[in-house]
Design a protein around this nucleic acid. Structure first.
Lengths: 149, 149
DNA sequence: GTTAGTGTTACTATCCTGGTTACAGATCCG
DNA sequence: CGGATCTGTAACCAGGATAGTAACACTAAC
């Protein structure tokens, strides 16, 4: 029915990493800002690093960092990193009925257009856009504020 | 994660009703074409009639019919009839963190744009479009073929 | 009054999500 | 070296949504 909150959490995570200014941010600190468990954050970070959006440093002083510049990460990249499967679920109709036989193909075309429209809208926004909007709401001037989480 | 198959089934149902040529189509006949249970179809028909897209006749010889011309029903109408709730699930961050405090508002704006783009794509297609595409795949000429299910 | 069909409820199995705990392995530091 | 920190990942659970199924009251036609 809905796109899981993983997407929203993933964007939240990436914004925190951007504000980390290149220093590793531990999952516990991220979890405090998101309001969840560190393991949940690590699970999402795992998907993000597999997608090449973040990388991690192990051990003391370790944590996650952005692997790319914020302006080169679109919300579509984030969406694809954490959301799998099709947006619309189709069904296979009865082959003996003309409608049942063809409805799936016709619907594939229609929902494909809808999915592409949504993805294009996500692709228009970058992580940098989101960060600056957050900064604007904070009343900050376009400068990152490291280490406050 | 995904939009339930109710949407696809609902479109399938409406195509069958359009091909019914105004005659009531019983849920059992629809269920056979979709490949499911008549009660599932009636459950979806209930949502469609609440949305003003179909109406039903009770008793012997009864069934469901379109309540509007097929060209005046968009796929967005169908989507809204059977799908409720938000497409994207957001989360509330920790109020004590600047990012946690503002991320929800920023994301609302971004995912709202994505949702609107998807809905506009759905609004561009009417039930009549879907029906003619099905007919085209059947190798039929723009004439409805009643009574074959 | 019998038959056919809807509208609706209840129950179930299944899947996904998110929360939680746990633990092995990597890394840093004294 | 040895302890502390932190990731990556697995296992498990609870909750909600979905879809399948059966059941039943009510309506309408014949």
């Amino acid at each position: 029915m809905a796109i899981s909150s993983r997407f929203a959490v993933a964007v939240h995570v990436l914004v925190l990493l951007e504000r980390g200014g290149g220093e590793p941010v531990p999952s516990e600190r991220i979890a405090a800002s998101v309001g969840t468990n560190p393991a949940v954050i690590r699970r999402i970070l795992c998907m993000l690093s597999r997608a090449g959006l973040t990388r991690s440093r192990l051990g003391t002083g370790g944590g996650a960092m952005l692997a790319r510049a914020a302006r080169e990460v679109t919300l579509l990249d984030v969406y694809r990193a954490v959301e799998d499967g099709e947006l619309f679920v189709l069904h296979a109709g009865d082959e003996r009925c003309p409608v049942g036989r063809h409805i799936e193909g016709v619907l594939e075309e229609a929902v494909g257009a809808a999915r592409r429209a949504m993805e294009e809208a996500l692709a228009k926004r970058t992580l940098a856009d989101v960060c600056s909007r957050v900064r604007a709401r904070c009343g900050e001037r376009g400068v990152a504020v490291p280490g406050e989480v």
